[in-house]
Simulated assay, not measured.
Amino acid sequence: MLRDITLGQYYQAESVIHRLDPRVKLVGTILYIISLFLFDHFTGYVAAAVFLIIVIRLSGVPFRYMVKGMKAIVFLLLLTMVFNLFLTPGETLVQFWKLTITKEGLRIAIFMAIRLTFLIIGSSLMTLTTTPNNLTDGMEKLMNPLKKVKVPVHEIAMMMSIALRFIPILMEETDKIMKAQIARGADFESGNIVKKAKALVPLLVPLFVSAFRRANDLAMAMEARCYQGGEGRTKMKPLQYKKRDFLAYAYLGCYVGIVLLIRKIGILP
């Protein structure tokens, strides 16, 4: 399951989305995530689904690969749905023992599941189609105005990029440690939730040691290359908007317009 996490990974492909300026993808991802929390109608989520499917098709990333990344959050999805389903007051639909399912709870549970699903897929799509270097450059460019108020833009962008990059690395490391401990007789499957949680404790020490070692190796590599932050640094490939980027912004603008239209007039309940 740990290997199924796609957030932070890069999928090599030759596609229109891969060639887009990282700033376009960052802005698009942010606006898409915001739009998911503006909808209170199923029509809005249909529009979001259509938008996402088109982008996935253009990205060249296999749909199965995208869905595979959802396996890691199935428990979170179910937990969110259960809480909303049983703890939201409103018009009663089904009642058994002390548990009550309301119309409002069912609606919110479905909406939250859709939001989380689209949010994870949309965020993963950005990292799958953007290299860490491009992602860092894009973040830095977008936050450039903050330099005027002495915000360390380059360092923030670098930290965010490294953090995203470390997600799949740490997941892979955790998987290796688990397999090594299973080979030594450790049991992570049997027992209740408490026992399973206790069984994971021995993973933490080697995982933290590995994480600190990797961080130290990265720091030493950066120092060996005389890295001193963003001051005075130049780019080998400076970011420049091209025609396809403006077309992407236009497509994004159409989506935002549809979102606002649905939000304003409330098409369909």
Rank of each mutant, 00 (worst) to 15 (best):
Ile262Glu: 13
Val209Arg: 00
Leu142Trp: 06
Val205Trp: 10
Lys264Tyr: 13
Asn216His: 09
Arg115Glu: 15
Phe86His: 07
Val256Lys: 02
Ala109Asp: 01
Arg214Val: 12
Glu172Thr: 07
Ile73Trp: 04
Lys198Leu: 14
Asp245Gly: 03
Ala219Gln: 10
Pro269Gln: 15
Val259Phe: 01
Arg64Lys: 11
Met81Lys: 06
Leu125Cys: 05
Met222Trp: 03
Ser124Glu: 09
Gly253Met: 11
Met178Pro: 03
Glu140Phe: 00
Ile193Leu: 12
Ile101Ala: 06
Ala183Trp: 06
Gly28Ser: 07
Leu77Val: 11
Gly191Cys: 13
Lys150Asn: 14
Lys198Ser: 13
Ala197Pro: 03
Thr92Leu: 04
Val209Glu: 00
Ser123Tyr: 00
Ser15Arg: 02
Ala109Met: 08
Met143Gly: 06
Gly28Thr: 07
Ile34Ser: 11
Leu247Arg: 08
Val209Ala: 05
His41Thr: 15
Phe96Arg: 09
Leu247Asp: 06
Glu223Leu: 03
Met70Asp: 05
Met66Glu: 10
Ile33Lys: 03
Leu170Cys: 01
Leu268Ser: 15
Ile108Tyr: 02
Ala215Asp: 01
Met220Asn: 13
Leu239Thr: 06
Ile110Asp: 12
Ser123Asn: 00
Arg213Pro: 01
Asp187Trp: 03
Arg263Glu: 15
Tyr249Val: 15
Lys25Thr: 10
Gly191Asn: 12
Val24Asn: 05
Thr117Met: 08
Arg23Asn: 12
Leu247Val: 12
Tyr251Asn: 15
Leu87Pro: 03
Leu58Pro: 02
Ser161Arg: 06
Thr102Gly: 01
Ser190Lys: 13
Lys237Gly: 09
Ala211Ile: 06
Ala224Leu: 03
Ile167Val: 11
Phe75Trp: 10
Leu261Cys: 05
Val24Gly: 05
